Computed example of a mutant assay.
Amino acid sequence: MDFKVNWKTGDKSLVVRSHDNTELVNDIFFAGCESAGAAVNVQMGKQTIQNIKNGAVKEVPFNFNMRCDGLKPDTKVPVKVYFEGNSQADGMLTLSNLGQPGVAAGVGISLVSDKGVKLPFDIARFVALVWNREVADGSVYRFTGSAKYTPTGGEMKPGKGDATMNFVLNYN
């Protein structure tokens, strides 16, 4: 790039000349990411109040995959996730229709990653997804966690124990 600037004031003038090279590089990591599979339905099964009180309920594992397309081969881009749902704190999901007839009381669903980290319900505390494998024109990332019923305080009553949460993907 060459440029020349002339300034003239009265009988005085100033000439500035410059010569330089500029290289523009367009290096896009990927076109986008999307869920690689159907909605995850975690079957918690039936549990007794006594087992929930004693912490003797089994953890139910679950996972989901994200496919990120347009990646250059062997490029590992950090993909992060956080969750949205009816939650009072990270790692604890409130039951749907709480307080309605036929819905359990005094129980919530504890959620942790496979590393024991409580699932975050805020973008500021995201969890990194783990790179899983290369596929044509991209990569697959995986989240693995587990869920279990846990006491939330107050009197426990039997009933339906359903809950819903969404995951929000961040791959900036």
Score class of each variant (00 low, 15 high):
Asp122Ile: 14
Arg133Ile: 14
Asn97Phe: 11
Val112Asp: 04
Ala136Gly: 04
Val135Lys: 04
Phe126Gln: 13
Asn97Lys: 12
Leu129Gln: 00
Asp137Ile: 13
Ile109Leu: 13
Gly108Ser: 04
Asn97Leu: 11
Leu129Gly: 01
Lys115Gly: 01
Asn132Tyr: 10
Trp131Tyr: 14
Leu98Ile: 13
Asp114Glu: 15
Ile109Asp: 06
Leu95His: 06
Phe121Ser: 00
Lys118Asn: 06
Gly116Asn: 06
Ser96Met: 10
Ser96His: 10
Ser110Trp: 03
Asn132Ile: 05
Val117Gln: 03
Leu98Asn: 00
Gly102Leu: 10
Gly138Pro: 04
Phe121Tyr: 08
Leu119Lys: 00
Ile123His: 13
Val130Asp: 08
Gly106Cys: 07
Leu98Tyr: 04
Gln100Val: 14
Val127Trp: 09
Ser96Leu: 04
Ala136Ser: 13
Gly108Ile: 08
Ser96Gly: 11
Lys115Met: 14
Leu111Glu: 01
Ala104Asp: 00
Ala104Cys: 07
Arg125Cys: 03
Val130Phe: 07
Pro120Ala: 11
Leu119Ile: 11
Asp122Met: 11
Leu98His: 08
Asp114Arg: 14
Asp114Thr: 14
Leu98Trp: 02
Val107Arg: 06
Val130Cys: 07
Lys115Cys: 12
Gly116Ile: 03
Val117Ala: 09
Asp114Gln: 15
Val103Trp: 02
Pro120Cys: 06
Phe121Val: 07
Gly106Ala: 07
Gly116Leu: 10
Val107Ile: 15
Gln100Cys: 14
Gly102Ile: 13
Val112Met: 11
Ile123Lys: 15
Phe126Asn: 09
Val107Trp: 02
Ala128Ile: 03
Glu134Cys: 13
Ala128Cys: 12
Gly116Phe: 05
Gly138Ala: 11
